[in-house]
Design a protein around this nucleic acid. Structure first.
Length: 288
DNA sequence: ATTCAGTCCTTGGAGAGCTG
DNA sequence: CAGCTCTCCAAGGACTGAAT
């Protein structure tokens, strides 16, 4: 869901307990963006942000400190600042960086960033392949000049920027030499955990990853000691157990919520894995 | 609504072969 | 040679219709 934002609403939101994006139910919210050719030694922090902030190094060098680690960065690299984290960054004295940034937040922000493996523990990403990151920054700059539809265009710009990152990450994945199997499996798990609530085939999963189905099954089992199907079923049943605690949902409702159109098939699978039927599970949990 | 049986479809895994 | 695709086939999961 896209909602229009402006500084007034954000200001009002800060008066309440929930973050702004949660109050407006927004998946992604644009905060600000820009770019700068830094002077030698120019620095920021140590400081804390309450939103996500991504910098893309266009040229030059600099350092980024977060979570007790220092990263030396060069052109083509990205660094992420996560909400609540104390960070510090500084341009190189001899070859100061020129970078662009975009700040955003929202309920889907963390999920999107996880998909490209940008997290608090892994805040740096190197882009070795050509991507449209620069044009997405240009688009954000153009959007700022609009008189009508500015906020919508800026929010769209955040989506485009993140899609460029995903595109880049996919390119890195395809060309990565560091344990690509684990990366494929990780991507497969993320796909399953996002789509478990609908009908999904392993063929579709393999197609999404860009691998042959048989080969994906082989490496998935090699890494996780279980097949993709087994992983998906177990994940669905764990989610079903959580849903069974909500007595207002029927077994049929839960069945459909975890990707089984047919409650009978769901019940059979649940009984097989958990040793008792969904109804008995709910009874045993004392939630009848 | 539930159960059952028959059928169809999907999956996992093995092995051969291709490619850079 | 590693990484991957393609093909094949057995097993079992999913679906459907009939019976209760």
């Amino acid at each position: 869901m896209i909602r229009i934002c402006d500084w007034r609403r954000r200001h009002m939101a800060e008066k309440f307990e929930l973050p702004y994006y949660q109050q407006v139910n927004a998946d992604l919210v644009y905060y600000y963006s820009g770019s700068e050719r830094c002077a030698p030694g120019h620095s920021y922090g140590p400081a804390v942000r309450h939103y996500y902030l991504i910098h893309y190094v266009r040229s030059g060098h600099g350092i980024f400190r977060a979570s007790g680690k220092e990263h030396t960065l060069r052109a083509g690299q990205i660094f992420l600042i996560t909400p609540g984290e104390v960070t510090y960054y500084q341009a190189d004295l001899d070859d100061p960086w020129h970078y662009s940034w975009v700040a955003f937040d929202g309920m889907e922000a963390a999920s999107c960033l996880r998909q490209v493996d940008l997290t608090t523990d892994s805040p740096v990403m190197t882009l070795t392949r050509h991507v449209n990151i620069l044009s997405s920054f240009d688009m954000l700059e153009d959007a700022k000049k609009l008189s009508g539809g500015r906020d919508l265009r800026l929010t769209g710009g955040v989506y485009i920027f993140l899609s460029c990152l995903l595109e880049a990450a996919a390119g890195e994945l395809a060309h990565s030499e560091s344990k690509p199997r684990e990366l494929y499996v990780k991507a497969a798990i993320e796909f399953m955990e996002k789509n478990f609530s609908r009908r999904m085939s392993i063929e579709e999963l393999a197609s999404y990853i860009g691998l042959n189905r048989s080969y994906l099954c082989a490496i998935f089992k090699e890494v996780t000691q279980q097949s993709p199907q087994q992983y998906l079923i177990r994940y669905r049943m764990e989610r079903a157990c959580e849903l069974l605690e909500n007595v207002s949902l029927s077994v049929g409702d839960i069945s459909r919520s975890v990707g089984y159109d047919d409650p009978l098939v769901f019940s059979k699978m649940f009984t097989k894995l958990k040793g008792l039927s969904p109804r008995d599970y709910r009874k045993q949990a004392g939630r009848t």
